[in-house]
């Protein structure tokens, strides 16, 4: 399923957050969105997934989503958004409960999603018993269990420490190699963008406009290798050069209220 964003503009009570975003995303592509703090990245993702109504413009889904997708637009949240009173399996099952599946089918799908995210042994654990990385795995499993056509990830690894982030990046790549979907990946971490994305959309500071689209030609599967380090570092440098000044201005703006 392809996506087309046409003139997406959004303002909160007169505060213009996004201004005329036009973008095409091809089926199966991973698009990272970076930009200074407060430039409207989360707003854009909210609009794409139907949680926010844009002030102007529209999001078009082109082509039917895969037939077995229960929830075509599915989010992975920065703060995991797990129900603390449900155990891991039940948190994942939440996404399936209103789809009229049989109990057995539900259990089977949950088990598969848990296995895919390396949570098999933790099915009965409560969120409070899990580390941050494990919790986000639950968030990812919950997203995968509905077989999304478009995966909307809003800084999914930002709450995690650097090592855990590294591990999860590898896992995400492995999963995406198996599960076909389109990914919109919001991050402020340039490494993540350089490692995971096919294209990187660089937004200007608020109101967010597309400043630059950076295509990374090296296949994602190869970017983890030591020999790929210079390429990845080069992309990183390029992205940093693009947002550095904006980021500084945005930070000053935040500091001065």
């Amino acid at each position: 399923m392809d996506l087309r964003l046409e003139g997406i503009t959004h303002s909160y009570d007169g505060l213009l957050a996004l201004d005329g975003i036009d973008l095409e995303v091809r089926d199966g592509e991973t698009v990272a969105i970076i930009g200074p703090s407060g430039c409207g990245k989360s707003t854009l993702l909210g609009i794409v997934g139907g949680l926010l109504k844009p002030s102007a413009g529209r999001v078009l889904a082109i082509g039917a989503p895969r037939a077995d997708s229960l929830n075509p637009f599915t989010y992975v949240f920065q703060d995991f958004a797990l129900l603390p009173w449900r155990n891991v399996a039940a948190n994942v099952a939440l996404a399936l409960e209103h789809h009229g599946l049989s109990r057995a089918e539900r259990r089977e799908r949950v088990a598969a999603a848990l296995a895919l995210t390396g949570l098999g042994e933790f099915a009965a654990a409560l969120p409070k018993q899990l580390s941050g990385g494990m919790r986000q795995r639950v968030g990812i499993a919950r997203a995968l269990v509905v077989r999304p056509a478009v995966l909307l990830l809003d800084e999914p690894l930002s709450a995690l420490d650097a090592q855990t982030r590294e591990l999860l990046m590898e896992d995400l790549l492995a999963i995406w190699a198996r599960e076909r979907s389109t990914r919109l990946y919001v991050t402020h971490n340039l490494d993540e963008a350089a490692r995971l994305a096919d294209r990187v959309i660089v937004l200007s500071r608020r109101p967010g406009r597309i400043r630059e689209i950076v295509r990374i030609d090296m296949p994602v599967a190869e970017r983890g290798a030591p020999t790929a380090l210079p390429v990845v570092a080069g992309v990183r440098e390029k992205l940093w050069a693009l947002i550095r000044d904006e980021a500084r201005d945005a930070e000053r703006e935040v500091q001065h209220g």
Binding site: G49, L51, N71, F77, D79, A81, A95, H98, R142
Partner: peptide, 12 residues
């Protein structure tokens, strides 16, 4: 955010 999450999964 929990309610937003539930909405994003289409819970009635």
């Amino acid at each position: 955010n929990l309610i937003r999450m539930a909405q994003s999964f289409g819970l009635p």
